[in-house]
């Protein structure tokens, strides 16, 4: 499938999706609550068949907390980047996609550990790298560690 028809298909599935400029991948910003439904149709649709989630990460853009999904299809060879974002910094929550792509289970735990983004329906949402009683989320831009992190 070529890039234009992927764009059309995604926009048909989620009308609110905004295309973002990116030379490498087709990038869409989509509302967080639509992510799970979109993911289902992306994976199980025959001519889309995005079966390979190779990267899932969080980004703190100060304004938003963003979760970035890098998807690819091993059958057709096309790829797609989806971004779900929220402005809620106190209690951010997304729907999990680890029932669709199993690799998401560990990636989401990492995002929860580092950004404090909760994933609803995740089977085992605990901190993965840091201790259970660790305070704060280190990859957020407002994380303060007066001892170790030096502001120049």
């Amino acid at each position: 499938m070529d890039n234009e028809s992927i764009k059309e298909r995604v926009q048909a599935l989620v009308p609110e999706a905004q295309l973002e400029e990116n030379k490498q991948f087709i990038t869409f910003v989509i509302p967080a609550e639509k992510m799970h439904d979109l993911a289902l149709s992306l994976k199980y649709n025959e001519d889309l068949a995005f079966d390979y989630l190779f990267c899932l990460t969080g980004v703190d853009t100060v304004k938003h907390l963003v979760v970035v999904y890098h998807l690819a299809s091993t059958k057709h060879g096309h790829s797609l980047v989806l971004k779900a974002q929220t402005t809620d910094r106190e209690n951010p929550a997304f729907d999990t996609i680890c029932d669709i792509w199993k690799s998401g289970e560990f990636y989401e735990r990492e995002v929860f550990d580092m950004f404090g983004i909760r994933f609803n329906n995740h089977p085992d949402l605990r901190r993965i790298f840091l201790d259970e009683n660790w305070k704060g989320f280190p990859f957020r831009k407002d994380y303060v560690d007066e001892v170790n992190i030096v502001e120049l």
């Binding site: 079966d51 390979y52 989630l53 190779f54 091993t74 792509w101 199993k102 690799s103």
Partner: peptide, 8 residues
């Protein structure tokens, strides 16, 4: 499973 778990 290899694809779903992204085992490369």
């Amino acid at each position: 499973n290899a694809i779903s778990y992204a085992v490369t």
